[in-house]
Amino acid sequence: MSKRKLTQLQALEAESIHIIREVVGTFRNPVMLYSIGKDSSVMLHLARKAFYPAPLPFPLLHVDTGYKFPEMYEFRDWFAKEIGAELIVHRNEKAIAQGMNPQEYGVARCCGALKTQALLDALEEGGYDAAFGGARRDEERSRAKERVFSIRDEFGQWDPKNQRPELWNIYNGQIHEGESVRVFPLSNWTEMDIWLYIRQENIPIVPLYYAKERWVIERGSMLIPFYEGMEDQLREGEKPTKVMCRFRTLGCIPCTGAVRSSATTLDEIVAEAAAARRSERETRLIDHGSNTMEDKKKEGYF
């Protein structure tokens, strides 16, 4: 390989930084959606690189369902402070006060209220015309179809059959009043790239990604995390057990499964990702109902 050649991770990094800067150059009021997960962590790291030595020129927005893992809240607050980022937390307080939960109302309704509606409200309240999301095209087959600049109408909805052509790396950021754009700087990254990059750059991640003995409920092939106060959710014959496990992706406690693992270091996690035969989203309940990712995206989910 000649001296002036970028490795594929360097090429992806340069592409993502170009996208992030283009958004700041084009839009009036951008915001970065921050979910605390590994992809968000990489996206945020790229944004810090893009504007170095200046601080981030936009705030982070965490759409909080109230069902995230305690370790995630702790990490979020610590990390935002550590890097001096402005963090906005938005919750659908009305639905949370009414006791919205996936067990009684179903996963689709719960996600609809606590994630999609909350996100749309937060974007509208903030008057944001562009929102960065850490979604990758390799995650799910409808995401594989999405543009880097994905236009949403004034209802925040996606029209997958009528996307703007996107040529070369020239992004069309012209939008009408009320429309907005979701931007995906990690479009071309794979799960493997994310882990390799986290290792290469030494990016801090939530400790839940590392294996340790955790209380879980074994339900079918799923390992459901068990926290105090969840006793009423046990089904007949179930009891919490301690299992050496970790999380490949992070979401809400009731809807995110763990996987058996002994990977306690970044090197071991990367090796495990390389050997994986099943996709990371397998452990996410939200992908498996009749309400597909495409349906959710059309309604405004990111």
């Binding site: 996307q163 597909t292 495409e294």
Partner: peptide, 29 residues
Amino acid sequence: MLTDGLAAEREQGITIDVAYRYFATPKRK
């Protein structure tokens, strides 16, 4: 069906929009 990611595509059996897929071999990504 692996790449036709939109409901309308699977329903009509045609590809409407570009799908991006990723794979790697020992030689390149």
